[in-house]
Computed example of a mutant assay.
Amino acid sequence: MADYLASDEEKEVLEKYLLQFLNLEKRYPLLPGIENEEAIAGLMGLEHSELKKLRDRFSSNAKQAAIELLEDPEVAEWIEELPFEDGDTIVALGDSITDDLQSWFHIFEHVLEIGLEGSEYTFINSGVSYNSSTEALKRLNRDVLDHEPDWVIVALGTFDAQRLHVAPDRPMVSLADYWENLNTIEANVSEVTDNPLIWMTPPPVITEMLQQIRLFNFNLFEEDLSSIREILTGKKGYIIDPLGERMHDEDQEEHEGEENGGPAPWNYLSDGLHPSLSGHTNTVKELVRFLALAKDPEEGAQLETPDDFDTGEDED
């Protein structure tokens, strides 16, 4: 039993926001007792049963989202065309958008396990909340390379683009350093697998919502995130959602000559930064679509954009 129990107000904050990103086991892997879930519960002021119940709820959300996604006949067809082989180890290197207990990676895991019955894959979520590419690079050996992955999905860039309140004139990580960090990640991953990397672009952020959250000491702007995506589209491998449109409303009808309506608020949590369950589901659909429809590349070659991908440019 925890010596200190969180108040009802503190438990509400944990349940509604913090807990799904508070994976202390990954942030402090060398802390004594960190693998003991009962000890983790004590650090949060929860009973072990309470922590397990809350974590199980997020896991159930991800599984249910996968089940609903597989009801889409296109998704069911696409997963049969994925480039993975039975027994592959798939690692995701990312930030809190990946680390989320109901993140796109967990939904993706359930999609493959349910949709490809009989296939066996090993999924390793190496996302750590609020990581920039620099911080992720520091743990590349332990969290990625040591697992000898067959496939690596890199989902970094959101927190490279953050502009701190104390230094608003520049992003946290310069574009030059971001580029070098990706090159180093790519070079090291290529030593353990011949498969091309899968690059996940950062989704847009609704800055107005983010600025209402006093928890954060930074801002994020689409201009900076767009520059990150431009760098990613120049990489070799699978480029998932190069224009960062997966958070838009799929049912929104655009009239000729009108600009895209932008990301839909319901695809985000209240901070306008982290995807909601529907936002994560959109990400999985784009991931599966791009992997299935991309043309077969030569090893290490740049993959071509799928034939059905709408660039948004007007035809002559």
Results as ranks from 00 to 15, higher is better:
133 S>H: 05
2 A>R: 08
158 T>L: 15
47 E>T: 07
72 D>G: 03
43 L>D: 05
253 E>P: 05
197 L>K: 05
146 D>C: 10
23 N>A: 13
188 N>Q: 15
187 A>W: 01
148 E>T: 11
104 W>S: 04
12 E>K: 14
9 E>T: 04
273 L>N: 03
31 L>E: 12
75 V>T: 14
219 N>V: 06
53 K>A: 14
70 L>H: 12
224 D>G: 07
236 K>C: 04
135 E>G: 07
144 V>S: 01
206 I>P: 05
102 Q>E: 08
208 E>F: 04
221 F>H: 14
61 N>H: 11
37 E>R: 12
73 P>Y: 05
33 G>L: 03
276 S>P: 02
220 L>F: 09
265 P>I: 00
48 H>P: 06
30 L>Y: 13
186 E>Q: 09
248 H>D: 15
131 N>V: 07
114 I>H: 11
278 S>T: 00
160 D>Q: 08
191 E>P: 01
257 G>M: 15
244 G>R: 05
37 E>H: 09
235 K>F: 02
46 L>D: 00
156 L>D: 02
296 D>H: 08
12 E>V: 07
26 K>Y: 09
113 E>K: 14
204 P>V: 02
25 E>S: 13
19 L>S: 06
315 E>L: 14
258 E>R: 14
261 G>W: 13
143 D>A: 08
237 G>P: 04
90 I>G: 01
121 Y>P: 06
155 A>P: 02
19 L>Y: 05
273 L>S: 02
223 E>W: 11
271 D>F: 07
72 D>K: 08
32 P>W: 01
312 G>S: 06
304 E>G: 08
228 I>Y: 05
237 G>E: 01
150 D>G: 07
7 S>F: 04
71 E>H: 13
75 V>D: 11
137 L>D: 00
161 A>S: 09
296 D>E: 13
311 T>D: 14
186 E>L: 02
259 E>V: 12
228 I>H: 06
152 V>W: 08
258 E>L: 12
31 L>Y: 09
173 V>Q: 07
256 E>N: 11
126 S>R: 01
222 E>Y: 13
63 K>R: 15
202 P>C: 02
225 L>T: 06
167 A>V: 07
177 D>Y: 01
144 V>Y: 07
305 T>W: 12
284 V>A: 06
305 T>E: 10
178 Y>H: 10
145 L>N: 06
139 R>F: 01
162 Q>T: 10
163 R>C: 03
177 D>H: 10
215 L>T: 10
53 K>N: 11
151 W>E: 01
54 L>H: 13
312 G>R: 10
131 N>L: 06
314 D>R: 15
213 I>P: 03
295 K>G: 03
281 T>I: 00
246 R>T: 06
166 V>T: 15
3 D>Q: 14
250 E>F: 07
206 I>H: 05
46 L>A: 00
308 D>G: 08
174 S>I: 03
149 P>F: 02
144 V>W: 10
238 Y>K: 06
136 A>P: 09
58 F>A: 04
94 G>S: 03
109 E>Q: 08
126 S>N: 03
15 E>D: 12
134 T>R: 09
133 S>Y: 04
79 I>H: 08
219 N>Y: 08
52 K>I: 09
121 Y>G: 00
